[in-house]
Structures are given as structure tokens and as C-alpha cells.
Design a protein around this nucleic acid. Structure first.
Lengths: 263, 263
DNA sequence: GTAATAGTGTCTTTTAGACACTATTGT
DNA sequence: ACAATAGTGTCTAAAAGACACTATTAC
């Protein structure tokens, strides 16, 4: 028996108080086209999917935080990571699969969940709108609904958000806003190839930077960005009557120091 | 009795398999001055503090992962968050207090810890060199030592890092490098007021960007950055014989979109 | 005076911002 | 032809990059 094995024998997890639960929650973001007409550049809005907690749980007993709106999520199993659990639960609860998922925080404030010492791993997901419409609600989830940022503020003010999900949602919004502007995740909201105005519409959901708002400025800037590439000869007419150049994201690490950028 | 209270009564945490442990680990970074002479601008190097696991534990039994190098850390108590635990443990294990701490990841891969289902919250801390020299080792920590990035690579290759700390350390390095360049955390490595060459030395530990490397470029750029401010009339001679302007960080959110920065 | 570091003058090149303009095409 | 979107020409201002230069001070 190795010394490491001997050491292992000595270890007893009962010596320590352990958590009562280990969960994953997912802030599912989508961008809904608020205006989608032929030959028109899209106008978009960021939205978050929430689930309304049922009045009764699967056993027919009163549910915790009944009727409030919550992030989809659930308990992590011993055989998986919180990240994997998030994927699985999203699939189980809303039938959504193959989406971009990112862990962005841990919520473990004592007392955050009335059921005990329950730790939540917060993730955000990016899902295209059509996938969400294919969703299904399960026993525990009375209803699935998309909320705009404005609507979320109202839910928050009226205390209609379950547990500490208000706080988690605020952090998720901050995180996705920063990521949309500082990384290339915008691609997760877009088809493989896209026009400048489609990318622009995505970015405008989280910023009002004049350099992004201005068509001429943005159309020129896009050509000098190393992580974007025009697809030669590829055009589309889905945003305008004039055939429009399609672009695609180039896989690369992007990190721009604040000390060298222009302000 | 409210319906919520009734629901609570139904909940039984024993229905679910729960983790065997909930821990916090801390990657303690410091910047060591590799050249510190009078009237000279400093030269700096990033270093990480690790603890060598003792051969025997407090009870005199063989220790798990004995003699390997590990991040300081330990079990989170029910009455605290992982973040608070990280602060407490850093203090207990190394006597370090009042430092910048940031949560950057969760490690919960099944089997990552031979003792069972143990979840680790990874944090990084920024500590000035003099605080680390005031450290003390406790029973469980045979030795505390600073490692340069090169030395860490060697430790990794020779499998001298405990548990999955190799992976955590790599992520911590990536994280702090990005944060040093994209946020104003560099201030945590510096005194309240500092010269351009001191800030420059900190940044050069993680980048070789010519705009930062060049004295003239950097000294000019620094004046136009909204999050840096010259302290009027304040100078020092600690980096040169000529009295040098002192700067300070201005508290503000900094977020530069990659779509508007110059490349 | 010398050596070393901080900082400026100035020129050139590149980029950004603004405005007017042209190009394309379904209706 | 018109309306609407994509995209260019061009001018100006600002910023970046490069190089030579000046300023300060301990020794």
C-alpha cells in the first residue's frame, strides 16, 4: 500500500460539514429581431429566457418559490461537472441543445437558498431565437418566456424573481455585454457568414458607441479587423436590395490592452 | 403556515447525492523586483506562491499528495462564501491579509481529488513582495516558496504539482495576464502613486507590446489615458536622478470594444 | 563633465470622423 | 424613377511611430 493510499484511508469527508446541494443555473440569452422585413437590415434586442416555477412540484406538493420566475437549472450529479450539468439541464428543461455556454460565477452566500447550503454555478448561454421557440416546458416549469432587459427590470422591482436570481441575472447581463464587445462571442448570435449590418445590429444591443452606430465608420473598420474576414465573392440580399458582402469570424485570440487603445 | 414553508418542509437534501467537500484555492501572485538599485527604473518578474505539502498531516498520518507543491487553500465553512474562505485561509496559512482577491473559476471534474467529490473555487490574489516575506508556514504546509513562470513550467513537467493544481495555475496565469492588460488591476502591484516606468515594469511582466516597451511612446500615451492621472507637483527620484512625475489610478470602469480599437 | 533616466520637438504615416457622393436593385 | 441600403472619395483632425533632441541630477 502506497503512502498516498494510506493517507486516503485516513480521510473522512464526514469530518467536514458539506454542502446540501450543488447546482447549475443558466442565463439563456437570445437576440430577437424586433424588425425583420425583406431587404431590410435587422433591428435586434437582447432577451433572457426565464422559467416560471410551478405552484406544485412533481410530487403534487407546494413548490418552493412557486410562481416566481427563475433561471433554468438544477442539481449537478456526481458524475458530471457543473458545466456539463448546465448543458444537460438546459436540454431537459427546454429541449435546447448544442449552444454556446460559459461559466461566469459562483453563488454561495449563506442563506441564499432557503433549502439549505446550496451552491449555484452561474452560466450564460447563447441561443438563436428559433431554437427557443422549439422549447418545451416540463413538470417543474410551468412556463418558459423571453424577457427584454426592460421587462427584467420590472420583474426585479416587483420581486418576481426566485431565490437570488435577480443578482445572478444582473451579473449575467454585465458579463455578456462585456463579452460581446471584448471577445468574438457575437458570432454565436449570428450565422456563419453575415453582413456588416447584422453584426452591427448584434453589437448595438449592448452599446451605443458612435463608431459602431455609424454605418460608414463600421463598414470601413470591419475591413481592418484581423478577426473578421470578407468571404471573397460571397454576397447576400437578405438585408438590402444591393448585394452585400458577407463576412466571417477568424478563429483567434483577441486581447487589446487598455494601455495602447485610443480613448 | 405559508405554502412556501410547506414546500420547504418537503425538501430533503438527502434525496440528492451531495459533494464531499467545498474548497477554495488561491493563486497568490506577486511581482518581484529582479533589479532594484538607487536611481534605476525597476525590472520585474511575475511570481506565484506555492506551498509544499507536508509528508505527514497534523495527526501524524501520511498526507495526501505529500511533498508536492500546491496552491494554498482549504475547506469552505457553511457560514461563509468561497471568497471569504479564500481570504481566511490565506491569512491562516500564510499570514497574508488585506489583499486583492478575485474568483476566476470552478474546478469540479469528477475524480479531480482522490478524496471524493470535492469542488474547488479558484481565486487569484495579488500581494506585494514584502507581505509574502512576512509569511509563516503552518502544520500542513511544510514550506512556502515563490516560483517564476519558468520554474512553474518545470514543476509542471516533473509532475510536482498536487491534484489538478497544474491546470488551475495555468488558468490563473492566463487570467492575470489578461486582467493586467484589460483592467486596472496593475494598481494592486504598485504603490498609490508611481512613475511611468514602474507601471511599465509591471505591464512588461506579461506583454512585449512595443507601445508599452518604448519609453517615449508609453510616457506620452499615459497622459491621454482617462484612468490615469498625474499627481500635480508630485515627483520622486526613486527611479532616476531626475525628479519624475508621479501618477495614480482613477477609479472608473474601463471597457474598450475590440471593434473600435486599433489593430 | 559624464552617465543615466525623464521628457519634448517635430516630422511622417496611419487612423478616425465627417460629409458628400456613387452603386445596386426590387418595386 | 424611387426608395433604401451598401459602399466609396476625399478632406480634415487626431493619433501613432520614429528619431533627434533637451532637461535634470548624483556622482
Amino acid at each position: 500500500m502506497s503512502t498516498n493510499d494510506q493517507a486516503l484511508k485516513q480521510y473522512d469527508s464526514n469530518k467536514y460539514r458539506t454542502p446540501d446541494g450543488y447546482t447549475s443555473d443558466i442565463a439563456v440569452f437570445t437576440i430577437v429581431a424586433t424588425e425583420q422585413r425583406a431587404y431590410k437590415p435587422p433591428k435586434m434586442k437582447l432577451a433572457l429566457m426565464l422559467i416560471q416555477r410551478a405552484a406544485l412540484n412533481a410530487e403534487g406538493d407546494p413548490n418552493i418559490e412557486a410562481n416566481k420566475w427563475a433561471l433554468p437549472g438544477g442539481f449537478v450529479q456526481e458524475s458530471e461537472t457543473a458545466f456539463e450539468a448546465a448543458k444537460r439541464e438546459l436540454h431537459e428543461e427546454t429541449n435546447i441543445q448544442d449552444i454556446h455556454l460559459k461559466h461566469f460565477g459562483v453563488y454561495d452566500e449563506p442563506g441564499r437558498d432557503p433549502r439549505g447550503w446550496i451552491i449555484s454555478n452561474a452560466h450564460y448561454a447563447i441561443v438563436s431565437e428559433n431554437k427557443i421557440s422549439m422549447r418545451k416546458a416540463n413538470d417543474d416549469a410551468a412556463e418558459v418566456k423571453l424577457f427584454s432587459m426592460d421587462q427584467l427590470q420590472k420583474l426585479s422591482q416587483e420581486s418576481k424573481l426566485a431565490f437570488d436570481h435577480d443578482e445572478i441575472i444582473q451579473a449575467a447581463i454585465q458579463q455578456i455585454k462585456a463579452d460581446l464587445l471584448q471577445t468574438t462571442v457575437a458570432k454565436e448570435f449570428l450565422p456563419n457568414t453575415f453582413t456588416f449590418s447584422e453584426l452591427q445590429a448584434v453589437l448595438l444591443t449592448v452599446t451605443d458607441d458612435p463608431a459602431i452606430k455609424s454605418n460608414q465608420a463600421f463598414i470601413r473598420k470591419i475591413k481592418s479587423l484581423p478577426f473578421l474576414e470578407a468571404v471573397p465573392g460571397q454576397t447576400t440580399q437578405r438585408t438590402s436590395k444591393t448585394p452585400t458582402q458577407l463576412y466571417t469570424f477568424v478563429e483567434m485570440d483577441v486581447l487589446k490592452p487598455i494601455y495602447t487603445a485610443k480613448y
